[in-house]
């Protein structure tokens, strides 16, 4: 690791199109920076050595944070985690996201780090990803060709790899408004009070009382090369079976979908165990006495 950052040219465009022009001009030699909390560390390790750093924080449009009934949540690319954490709609409607934000890095880093940045770093351990996966979030991507919406699962292509082209950038994250009775949680296995996820589980439940229309979703971090959502769960929970059987099936579906590894943070076996118990804990917390 170097103390000194590599040399680069710093740009601070005022509009998205100016930022895109810069990206276009410098091709792969440029990178966008939102909070910079991952980027600057990667640059010190010389994992990323961009010749041009395009700071997005001067672009007013990217700083917007809104919630509209019907439209849902729109989170601009430079909205910090703490702004999001303090936003009422997040706490009241997007519980799992709020859980994840609250337990993510620390107060000081959250004053800089952004949600879009967390997603674009595409770490398998990204805490915000599982909540956003269960909320069906989409990512708004801008390029010289215009804007397109990308389903979040399609953003992640591998460990710290995304489907974004070198001339593209994320401008916002859109999270549709969840059903009115939605409840969601994010739980994570940690080594100490502040840690990245050893295993993270986001669980969402809505319309529980109507078995045919019931929505139950599960998504995970740190269990595969990318954050993953387990789609089978929804079908499983619409079966007319005892609660215990449904949970068993959901846990096996999750375990079938994931491919945890052993690394410095955890063994594969412990991850498998955590997937099992955290999934059950999350569902239990959401459903309490209602099941």
């Amino acid at each position: 690791m170097f103390v000194t950052l590599p040399e680069f040219e710093y740009h601070r465009p005022q509009t998205v199109s100016a930022a895109l022009d810069l990206l276009d001009q410098y091709g792969g030699g440029a990178t966008v920076m939102a909070g910079g909390t991952d980027l600057l560390v990667d640059m010190r390790y010389r994992i990323r050595v961009p010749e041009h750093v395009i700071d997005l924080k001067g672009i007013e449009e990217l700083g917007k944070l809104t919630f509209q009934p019907g439209e849902g949540l729109v989170i601009g690319a430079t909205v910090t985690l703490n702004r999001l954490l303090e936003y009422d709609a997040v706490q009241s409607r997007f519980g799992a996201l709020h859980d994840a934000l609250e337990d993510m890095c620390d107060d000081q880093v959250r004053n800089r780090a952004t949600l879009a940045g967390n997603l674009c770093t595409a770490s398998p351990a990204a805490d915000c990803a599982p909540p956003l996966l269960v909320f069906d979030a989409k990512v708004e991507v801008a390029s010289p060709a215009g804007r397109r919406m990308v389903d979040l699962p399609d953003l992640f292509t591998g460990v710290k790899e995304t489907s974004l082209g070198t001339d593209e950038m994320v401008t916002a994250v859109h999270v549709p408004e969840p059903p009115p009775d939605v409840q969601s949680r994010y739980l994570k296995g940690k080594r100490s009070s502040e840690d990245c996820a050893i295993v993270g589980v986001a669980a969402l439940v809505a319309r529980w009382d109507d078995p045919r229309d019931r929505v139950v979703r599960l998504a995970y971090s740190s269990v595969a090369p990318t954050p993953v959502r387990v789609y089978d769960v929804e079908r499983i929970f619409r079966q007319d079976k005892p609660w215990g059987d449904l949970v068993e099936e959901a846990v096996s579906a999750a375990l079938n979908r994931v491919s945890p590894i052993s690394d410095v943070r955890s063994s594969k076996e412990y991850r498998v165990h955590l997937i099992d118990v955290l999934t059950r804990l999350a569902l239990r917390e959401l459903l309490g006495g209602r099941r």
Binding site: Y10, R12, G35, G36, T37, L40, V41, V53, D55, K57, N82, D107, Q108, V109, N111, R112
Partner: peptide, 19 residues
Amino acid sequence: CLVLIDGRPIKSCLVLAQE
């Protein structure tokens, strides 16, 4: 290396001076 930027506590090793 924490400092306050516009009143918010921030780790100064993760901030470019130009910002």
